[in-house]
Amino acid sequence: MIAALPTCRHCKAVLPPVQYNMPTPLPCPQCGRASRVLVFPALVQPPPPVPRLTAVTGNGDAGCFYHPAKQATMVCDGCGRFLCALCDVELGSEHLCPPCLEAGRRKRTLTRLETRRVLYDNVAMALAVLPILTCFLFPITSPAAIGMAIWGWRKPGSLLPRTKARFVIAIIIGVLGIGAGIAYWTAIIRS
């Protein structure tokens, strides 16, 4: 079933199928703006069939762990339990049972389910660097930057390759900020 046909970005008119999968961009018949449309078989593919549950016949068939009367069709990649078609959740190339899926989401071990991650190294860097604009905030933000760097060091960071350099730089700037603050106040007290 087709969810929607591709439309022109400018005039919102549906682009005619003669424009699909052409090697060069073609003008929109309504507004004349050039666009290139590539469609794939998924556009016209019927929805996947509803899984059929079959009862255990008793001839050496394994039953589902959660529905013992139903025949198992898959093994959970997380816990190894037998699953029927109803309990099998496909996640990329993995097959999981609902409890493993929920545990993976909660413990953040299934990265494919994650849609957002906090970059603690960027937070630490911001705390360390931004108060340069307002020097009087250094006594608060420098220790906070060091604390954030230590706290976030072992937290899961970006899904993409990333070094710990920002943490190290934030700690160095934080230490320098604290040192400068101590020196400044020592000089004031002595004078």
Binding site: P6, R9, L15, R33, V39, A42, T115, R116, R117, L119
Partner: peptide, 28 residues
Amino acid sequence: LLHVHEEHIAERYQRFYFRDIQAIHVHH
């Protein structure tokens, strides 16, 4: 495909599985 939106202190991810992609449009 993984589309990453960096929001300074966080990252947002959008995944587009090859088997689910129906069309790609490029508009000038």
